[in-house]
């Protein structure tokens, strides 16, 4: 009945033990993944419709804010001075160097996600009476980030420029965001 525990037996047992642990670990991980991944955006959230905006009535020097994916999107019809100041800015010295041309499709209209890249507040600067910061674009009051006419970060804790959402011009004055 009681056989000797040969080294060979021991090897077999070790193998069984290790493969049991390994299989158990894989099984546990494949159960944990759905538990974690369910927190990622659901299909209907991902499918959130794009937003179309008519810019016909937006006069030079005016801004509008529209909602896209639960966030504000800033659209500004820039003045000539704003455009030239954005274009003339040299790249060195910028924290997140980008030319204005990389950030606009039509010089007149700048389209930005109105969410500070620091910790997500909505910067001021859309209304005419707003504080616009030292660079005349937008100013985030939460921890003091200053953005220029191109929405580039110039001063304060925010690490990157205001995000430019994906958008396209359907006609001269109609844009589709998303």
């Amino acid at each position: 009945m009681t056989k000797k525990n040969t080294p060979e037996d021991q090897n077999k047992r070790d193998f069984l033990q290790v493969s049991t642990y390994a299989l158990g670990a894989v099984g546990a991980a494949s159960f944990v993944w759905p538990l974690i991944d369910q927190m990622n955006p659901a299909a209907d959230t991902l499918a959130l419709a794009s937003t179309e905006v008519d810019l016909e009535a937006l006069e030079e020097g005016q801004s509008i804010t529209v909602k896209w994916r639960g966030k504000p999107v800033f659209i500004r019809h820039r003045t000539k001075e704003e455009i030239s100041s954005a274009k003339d800015q040299l790249l060195d010295g910028l924290r997140d160097p980008q030319t204005d041309d990389e950030r606009v499709q039509n010089d007149k209209y700048i389209v930005l996600v109105g969410v500070c890249t620091h910790l997500g507040c909505v910067p001021l600067g859309q209304k005419s009476g707003d504080v616009k910061g030292e660079y005349g674009g937008w100013f985030c009051p939460c921890h003091g980030s200053h953005y220029d006419h191109s929405g580039r970060i110039r001063k304060g804790p925010a690490p990157t420029n205001l995000e430019v959402p994906k958008y396209s011009f359907l006609s001269d004055t109609l844009i589709k965001i998303g």
């Binding site: 974690i36 927190m39 955006p41 959230t45 994916r69 966030k71 997500g120 507040c121």
Partner: peptide, 25 residues
């Protein structure tokens, strides 16, 4: 503001924040 703190993490920060939110905000 607090959930955005996690976006400071290099590389995976943004995905973590999206995961925390379950959306884009």
């Amino acid at each position: 503001v607090i959930t955005n703190l996690f976006s400071a993490i290099p590389l995976v920060g943004e995905s973590i924040v999206t995961w925390l939110w379950g959306g884009f905000s």
